[in-house]
């Protein structure tokens, strides 16, 4: 791909990634959503977060890998325990990162 095509690609990608973020806030904020739709939308966040968590742990490289060789699964366990126990983002992050570093350097 030559330099011009790359610039066209960047501008095109920019448009298609910015519009879906901005348009709903820009266009829908004028309307009052009906209560059931609001309730439905409030469930979107837990659903999205759960999908993201699942894929980031069980498919860290973009394909599903549910096996004992997937170190993300091993790091998931202590991180979840610490998150539930301490309810602290900082401790959860530290646990996850340190576990991952240990796994990478000493086991995998």
């Amino acid at each position: 791909m030559n330099s011009n095509s790359i610039w066209i690609m960047i501008i095109g990608v920019s448009i298609v990634s910015i519009l879906p973020r901005i348009l709903p806030v820009a266009l829908l904020s004028r309307y009052e959503f009906p209560a059931p739709l609001k309730r439905w939308l409030s469930l979107v966040a837990p659903a999205v977060l759960s999908s993201l968590t699942t894929l980031s742990v069980l498919a860290p490289d973009g394909f599903i890998d549910i096996s004992i060789n997937n170190s993300f699964i091993w790091a998931f366990i202590p991180t979840l325990l610490v998150a539930v126990k301490t309810r602290s983002l900082l401790y959860s992050l530290l646990t996850g990162i340190v576990t991952m570093a240990l796994l990478y350097n000493f086991i995998c």
Binding site: L52, F76, L93
Partner: peptide, 16 residues
């Protein structure tokens, strides 16, 4: 450095 687990760890915690 284990940083590859930063975002998964954040998701896990926020999910909790």
């Amino acid at each position: 450095l284990g940083l590859s687990f930063t975002l998964p760890a954040m998701y896990i915690c926020l999910l909790v």
